[in-house]
Computed example of a mutant assay.
Amino acid sequence: MILEAAMLQVKEGMEAEYEEAFRKASEIISSMKGYISHELQRCMEVKGKYLLLVQWETLEDHTVGFRQSEEYQEWKRQLHHFYDPFPTVEHFERVEL
């Protein structure tokens, strides 16, 4: 399992609109091959800051399967205009302890 993590900064005053758009766009990502789960967390200290966590079966399910799909184009259309600056996305794998 791979964890995708993105720190998102939403333009000031657009938070409620973003959250509603994200709810709708969630149908897109949750329909993709290799998708396991996702959650959006709102920062308590910084207005407009969110953390998106998505679990994928493999890295390629995100980087190729989702990012190179028509569905991703729709995801971008629905959400990317809210971000300033554009988010950095990183991928993590669990450390077995």
Rank of each mutant, 00 (worst) to 15 (best):
F86R: 10
Y18R: 02
I2D: 01
E27S: 14
F92H: 04
E45P: 05
V10I: 13
I36V: 09
F86Q: 14
F82R: 09
F82V: 09
S30R: 10
Y83S: 07
L3G: 00
E74V: 15
E90A: 10
V10F: 04
E15C: 08
L97F: 04
T63S: 13
S26D: 15
M7P: 03
E39K: 09
A5P: 00
F22R: 02
V95Q: 12
Q41W: 10
A5V: 09
E15A: 09
I28K: 09
E70G: 07
E60G: 04
H62G: 12
L40F: 05
E12H: 14
K11P: 14
M44Y: 15
A6I: 10
G34R: 11
F66N: 01
G13L: 10
K33E: 15
L97D: 08
E71P: 00
C43Y: 00
L97G: 15
M7A: 03
Y72W: 06
Q9F: 02
Y83Q: 09
L97C: 02
R67I: 01
M14Y: 08
L3I: 03
Q73W: 04
V89Q: 04
K76H: 08
V89H: 01
L8N: 02
K24A: 02
V95N: 05
Q78W: 01
Q41I: 14
E39D: 13
P87I: 13
Q9A: 11
Y35D: 06
E39G: 06
I2Y: 13
A6Q: 03
V89L: 07
G65D: 03
R67A: 04
Q68C: 10
C43E: 12
E12A: 15
E70L: 05
L53S: 04
R67E: 02
G48H: 11
Q41Y: 14
Q68A: 12
M7H: 12
L8R: 00
R77H: 08
E39A: 09
Y18D: 00
V46G: 03
K24Y: 04
E70N: 11
I36Y: 00
M1L: 12
L97Y: 07
S30N: 13
K76S: 15
A21R: 10
V54Y: 03
E19W: 10
K24H: 10
C43V: 03
R42G: 02
A6S: 12
M1A: 10
H80L: 11
V46M: 05
E74H: 04
E96K: 15
E60Q: 11
W56A: 00
D61Y: 01
M7V: 10
H81E: 00
M1C: 09
G34W: 06
A25H: 12
P85V: 07
